[in-house]
Write a protein that binds this DNA or RNA. Structure first.
Length: 182
DNA sequence: ACAAGGATCCTCT
DNA sequence: GAGGATCCTTGTT
């Protein structure tokens, strides 16, 4: 596995971090995933949970870069994010899709035999993500490691998903990134 | 203390 | 392609 990504890696615009994370590895013992889809959420972005200010839930988004932000979606899914930008600036990257690198047996158990991890709820389930991870630095329960993108892969960019509540200009922003075979 | 709604997924048809 | 599951967070009484 490549080196652990440092806080510095995350201390920039989420819109830059999101595509950079494609091909990187996500590890929560004993499962390792390769990231193939991400979305960026930024300060002053009406799609971002933190756009109305700090609350107990969104506090980690304002915290140091490289920390983990996990929240419950639709009462069922634990969605995994990585905090970006300098401390005090609320931004993060949602992990929307991945492939299994290691821990396949456990992923099958957690996912009812399925291995496809396209969709943020599936990623959280495969990792065994818990709400207690939120606010913790990467490198403890969850770690993010450098990876690589194959010459046969390319990055597709498009609008984000599931943010109908956001302002029209934010809904349009092309901050969803996918790694696809070219 | 209460009600509403959500950065989704699965199982049907 | 439609609908239900399921529970925490939030803003309001």
């Amino acid at each position: 596995m490549g080196p652990l990504l440092s806080p510095r890696f995350f201390a920039r615009s989420a819109a830059d971090v999101a595509p950079s994370l494609l091909g990187c590895l996500l590890h929560a013992e004993p499962v390792t995933l390769r990231i193939v889809e991400t979305e960026a959420y930024r300060q002053n972005d009406t799609a971002c949970h933190a756009h109305r200010g700090r609350t107990p839930r969104t506090e980690p988004l304002f915290g140091p870069p490289g920390h983990v932000y996990v929240y419950l979606c639709y009462g069922i899914h634990r969605l995994v994010n990585l905090v970006c930008e300098a401390e005090g600036v609320a931004a993060g990257v949602l992990i929307r899709g991945a492939t299994v690198v290691a821990g396949e047996a456990l992923v099958r158990t957690r996912r009812g035999g399925r291995l496809d991890l396209i969709g943020p709820g599936k990623v959280g389930q495969a990792l065994g993500a818990e709400l207690g991870w939120t606010g913790r630095p990467s490198g403890t329960l969850l770690s993010v490691h450098a990876g690589s993108v194959a010459p046969t892969e390319c990055i597709r960019r498009g609008p984000r998903v599931g943010i109908d509540y956001a302002a029209p200009e934010d809904r349009m922003r092309p901050w969803r990134f996918q790694l696809v075979p070219s």
